[in-house]
Design a protein around this nucleic acid. Structure first.
Length: 294
DNA sequence: TTGCCGCCTTTGTA
DNA sequence: ATACAAAGGCGGC
């Protein structure tokens, strides 16, 4: 199937969107991106303004890649300074992805103190061990394990997937989702703060993980996750918005303290507005690409 | 109450 | 090779 996009009203860049570090389960084989979403293997490619895909319908693709987000307006709203404009110009067409909340939650619990290649490895291990094998084009893929597949495991089995100290958090969180204590559909209806407070009750979920789930899966575009990269960006390019003592202290440690987290993310929400999360993703991608060779 | 320290596993990277 | 960093969270003081 195909979708033809109008680049003026619906700019989209598939490579930037899948490479910017928000999702961990896609890989490019030849010209096609392959992924597993909603228990199905999907492939998709882009040539200019045409998206071609198999394994999913048009509605799914539009929803997953948030093609209804009116990017021209969103990007102009967050274009507050030269640095942001640079990021937007560099990765024009990068979109947030509407992820599955359960997979997103587990992924970011696992992301704690890990770099992106290692996160991909953990998630793939989980899927291979506890998901179901599916095929597309003679390639093998694995569905992401359901909550009740995780609750049937134990700490040791999860540690075999290289989860380390995150294993117990994934296990306990799976139980809470499985027994209905956490309902993603309900969280999505709540406002940002309320939903965040609910997520913060889960083991292994602090400020950063909660904001990632809110932004990437629960449609809270004002969420502004602050990890080591975002803290670095803020200190480098936005220090004038904070007092000097704050910046001086921030330079001492890499990962943000709870107080720094609050200062930075609330600044970002005020500064960038209701689409702060989009700004975060553009700035995150720029910071990683300029500092690293990943 | 708030703030900061050290630990938690394992992999990637210089 | 050896150390340090990694889309952090949490208990303890």
């Amino acid at each position: 199937m195909k979708i033809t996009l109008n680049p003026k009203t619906t700019p989209f860049n598939l490579d930037y969107t899948l490479r910017c570090g928000q999702v961990f389960r896609w890989k490019k084989l030849g010209n096609w991106w392959y992924g597993v979403v909603n228990d199905k293997a999907i492939k998709i490619k882009q040539s200019n303004n045409v998206l071609e895909f198999e394994g999913a319908d048009t509605k799914f693709v539009e929803n997953y890649f948030r093609l209804d987000d009116f990017l021209p307006s969103i990007l102009s709203k967050i274009s507050k300074d030269e640095h942001t404009k640079n990021a937007i110009q560099s990765f024009y067409g990068l979109r947030l992805i509407q992820q599955d909340p359960w997979e997103c939650l587990v992924s970011y619990i696992c992301a704690t103190n890990k770099n992106i290649p290692a996160i991909k490895e953990m998630i793939n291990n989980l899927a291979k061990q506890f998901g179901e094998k599916i095929t597309l084009d003679d390639y093998f893929f694995y569905t992401f394990p359901k909550p009740n597949s995780i609750t049937r495991t134990n700490n040791k089995m999860l540690r075999c997937c290289k989860l380390g100290f995150r294993a117990k958090n994934v296990l306990k969180t799976a139980r809470q989702v499985n027994n209905g204590k956490v309902r993603f559909a309900e969280l999505e209806k709540m406002d940002y703060e309320t939903a965040k407070n609910e997520l913060l009750q889960l083991p292994g979920v602090g400020n950063k993980v909660a904001d990632c789930v809110l932004l990437f899966a629960l449609n809270k575009l004002e969420a502004f996750p602050v990890d080591v990269w975002m803290k670095k960006t803020i200190v480098k390019h936005y220090s004038t918005h904070f007092d000097k003592a704050f910046i001086r202290k921030a330079l001492k440690k890499k990962s943000p303290t709870p107080a720094e987290y609050l200062m930075i993310s609330s600044f970002a929400r005020k500064y960038f507005g209701e689409y702060a999360g989009y700004a975060q993703q553009y700035l995150f991608h720029l910071e990683r690409l300029t500092c690293k060779t990943v």
